[in-house]
Structures are given as structure tokens and as C-alpha cells.
Nucleic acid binder design. Structure first.
Lengths: 247, 247
DNA sequence: ACGTGAGCTTGATCCATGTCAACAGGAATC
DNA sequence: GATTCCTGTTGACATGGATCAAGCTCACGT
């Protein structure tokens, strides 16, 4: 049978090979904008692909930094711990996004990265990324954009934490998730939350009860339908309006 | 007289020339870790030095991005505006720190940078910085560290906004300022605030009245002495303790 | 099929911070 | 030197969200 379908062999080989060039996330991830040629050079440096089980750490605060990580599939959270035990979720990351940028600064990770579902990541040794990006202008520039985007995102979160009230925060959170799922080809209106109410609350600077109440409120108002972690957005405009005008 | 002091001429020339190589902030700023040789190449790309008067914008949200800026002297704030008029101060920057990193991501600035006192900045054309950092490994690496440090700093602010109460936030803020003044050779215990209570409040996610009350409380407790914008820290340890244990 | 526990919802109450208001002190302007 | 405005302080009161508590739901393991 194999002899009549020679193509099959190629396909199975390409599936096995860990490579940006055959990753369907390449337009969302680090390889964005690279030529075929350049892509292959990037492939060379991504040798390690790792599975991380739900609940496991990809890295922990304090560990020595040597790689950044691209999420191939799955869902992560990052969190920071204070000495007194308080902690805060600093972000939720999905496929195509990079983890570990915080470690460059001190050569040690400054937060924990934990898988919220079984996930797969590509490890990118940072010194090799630096040397390759000295050679590939597009790679260098795009990497800078990614870091800058992280800074802009953080400013958005600061805005949210500093000036918005509970319901506005949750609306902003849902709209952001929706937009990121859309970019990955999923429905913008219907998705599963990978995180608990407590984790959402930690990210939004709220207690889990407040998050829960806000979900109920949105449901009463007909903005969304919630069933546990299953969310359907019924009225995007109301959520957007909620975010922009204080009412 | 000049003939008897030939050295004077050299000194005055070096003062006039805009250059990292003779800037006393070079160890805090972008040139950190560069050799004399490399420093001179960096000098070539920093042609523009600009004075910004107190209250004036260095750049505005929405403007096209083409340079990042190093603060040579003075003090800035950055802030973000929401459509509905709410705004939030996202940071205060002092000499040796970089401004404009947020603009790399979209090639447009995403916040406003405003001088809080008469200031002087060096404009660094970003495309030239990228090409130079393709040649100078140290420059590339240090630039990455600076961007990463900004991300880590933002996570700290998120932590502050998400989990700390008013007095803890103000204590963290004062300790952070103190530490940064120290790094610049100023007193760690005595300094002038360049920003108003309202700006501090906006940064810390508090109203100006709450900031004012917290200052008064710290003064009553003997942690600090406040007189308008003049601050003396009398008991660093109490401030640190306040920040770490919830009490 | 059943029991168990983690995660979620909802209600009652409390408190930190926001809001509103009056006033005071300095700096800037004329 | 008087006037004005901006900034900061303080008090009284309001309120959004935290806290405490009870009960519910559903996924999971046995």
C-alpha cells in the first residue's frame, strides 16, 4: 500500500520533524515574516520540543534562564509570588505566544509558568536566537516587536487594574480572549476557559466571588451565556460599551 | 591663559559633544558594558539631543515611532489614555532610563511621554540601533536586557495594583524611588518628588486623597518626613515591613 | 453507580477606599 | 504686593468589592 501512496511518507516525516517551517502557527509566532530560507535556519536552533502536563511547571521563578519558549499547543499561566505568600497571575498564554522573556533581564526567571492543560512547547536557546538574529534582520526586528508587544500588553493590564471596576475588567478580559481565539481560527463567540475563577480573579485583581458575581450579572443582562467554563458571547457590543463608558 | 591650560580646551570640547562616551550615565544607560571602540560607534548614531521643557511632550500616543530616547537629565512620566477620558500613569522615568520601547511593536507610540521637569534627551534612531546591534553583540544583549527589565518592572506594578493595599503601594513606590536615586548617586533617604499626588495616585491606582492620607499616616508613624514634595525617609525597615507582611 | 472534593454560586455583612466638600499654603502672574 | 490658581490636607459620608459562610454542581476515582 505504501508504494502506491509515496506522498504519505513525506507527510509523516514532516509531522515528526520539529520545525517552524511546517508549524501552522508560524504566522503568529516567532517566524513571522521570514523567507523559506530563513525559516530553515530558525528550524536548526529549535531542537527541543517538550510536552508539559496540565498543572506542571515549564519553569519556576529563580531558575536559571537560558531559553525562551514558544507554545505549540496548549495553554499556560504565569504568576509571581511575593515573600508573604500573596501571588498574582501576570498573564495567560496560548499557542503561538512566547514565554520566558522576563528571564533575559537577570538571567533568571522571575515568574512561574504553569500549564493549564496538556501542552507542547518549543524551547529556543536564547544565545543562539541572539546570534541568528544578528544575521537575519527580519528575525531580529520581529523579536523586538514581540518584546515590545509584551510591554504594551502589560500597560493595558496596568490600565485595567488601575482604573477599571470589576465588571469592566471582566468584560475586557473576555473580549481579549475572544480576539486571541479568533486570531487562532477558533470561534470568537464561544470558547472554554482553561482557568478557574480564582485564577481569573488573581489576574484581574479581584476575588473569585466577585468574578463569579460578574459572570452571573453578564448572564442576567444577556451579554453572555456561562455554563461552568463554557462561555458564549451573545452581545459583544454591550461588553465593549461596558468597558468604555463608565455606567 | 589658554596657552598655559591646554587641557581646558579638550574638556570644553568634550562637554559640547553629544556622546555616550563622555556621558556619566553610560553605566546606567544603553552603553553599559561596551568597549571604548564600541562606544564610539554608538556615539555616531546619537546625533540628536533635545531639551524638553517641563510639561511638554516628548512624544504622544499615536505618533509614528522611529526613535527610542535616553534621558540625559530630568524626569518624565508616561501615561495611557482610554477613549472615555480615563488615564493612567504607566511609569516615571529618570536619567539613564529609556523611553519609547512601547512604540516598536506597532511602529506607533502607544503612550504619552511628558517631562515633569526641564529635561534633556538623546534620540536614538531605532533602525540604526538595530543595525548596530547586529554588529555589536554586547549592545544587542544589553538592549534585550533593558527591554526584559521593563517587562519585569511592569509585572511588579501589576503585582502592586492587583494585590497590595494603599499604604503598601505607597511604601513600595517610595522604596523604589529611593533605590533608583541611590543608583544615580543621590541620597537614598532624602529627595524631591517631581510628580503631584494625583500623578502618584494614578500610577498606584489610588485617588489623590488616599495618597495624601497615606503620606500623613507615614509621617505620624515616624516612617518619613513629608513637606510638600520634599521627602525624607526616616525608617526604611518599617516601610519594607509594611510592604511584605499584611498588617 | 456512588461518594468525594474541587470549583462555583449566592447571600449577608464589613471595611478600605472613593467621593464630595471645605479649606490652607505656595507658586506663578500681574 | 495682591490675586489667582494649583496642589495638598483633612473630614464626613457613600459604596464597591472583600470577607465569611452555606450550599450546590459536576468531574473524577473507586
Amino acid at each position: 500500500m505504501a508504494s502506491t501512496y509515496p506522498l504519505n511518507q513525506e507527510i509523516s516525516l514532516s509531522v515528526i520533524k520539529t520545525a517552524c517551517s511546517n508549524c501552522n502557527l508560524r504566522e503568529l509566532c516567532l517566524p513571522f515574516g521570514l523567507s523559506i530560507d530563513e525559516l530553515e535556519r530558525l528550524d536548526d536552533l529549535i531542537s527541543t520540543r517538550r510536552r508539559i502536563k496540565r498543572g506542571d511547571h515549564l519553569y519556576r521563578a529563580g531558575e536559571v534562564f537560558d531559553s525562551i519558549y514558544a507554545i505549540r499547543s496548549g495553554f499556560f499561566k504565569t504568576d509571581v509570588l511575593l515573600e508573604d505568600g500573596r501571588d498574582q497571575v501576570t498573564g495567560f498564554q496560548m499557542a503561538g505566544e512566547l514565554l520566558g522573556l522576563d528571564g533575559i533581564s537577570t538571567e533568571h526567571h522571575t515568574c512561574n509558568a504553569i500549564a493549564l492543560e496538556d501542552s507542547e512547547i518549543c524551547a529556543i536557546p536564547f544565545n543562539r536566537l541572539e546570534s541568528l538574529s544578528r544575521e537575519i534582520h527580519n528575525l531580529q526586528h520581529h523579536f523586538h516587536k514581540v518584546m515590545s508587544r509584551e510591554i504594551v500588553r502589560d500597560h493595558g493590564v496596568m490600565m485595567l487594574l488601575g482604573t477599571m471596576r470589576a465588571e469592566e475588567r471582566l468584560a475586557a478580559f473576555l473580549l481579549n480572549l475572544s480576539q486571541r481565539f479568533t486570531a487562532r481560527g477558533f470561534s470568537h463567540a464561544e470558547f472554554y476557559l482553561r482557568m478557574t475563577r480564582e485564577e481569573i480573579g488573581s489576574y484581574l485583581g479581584l476575588k473569585l466571588e466577585t468574578v463569579s458575581r460578574a459572570f452571573s450579572k453578564f448572564q442576567e443582562e444577556g451579554y453572555i451565556a456561562v455554563q461552568q467554563k463554557h462561555i458564549r458571547i451573545l452581545n459583544v457590543n454591550s461588553l465593549k460599551a461596558l468597558m468604555n463608558h463608565r455606567c
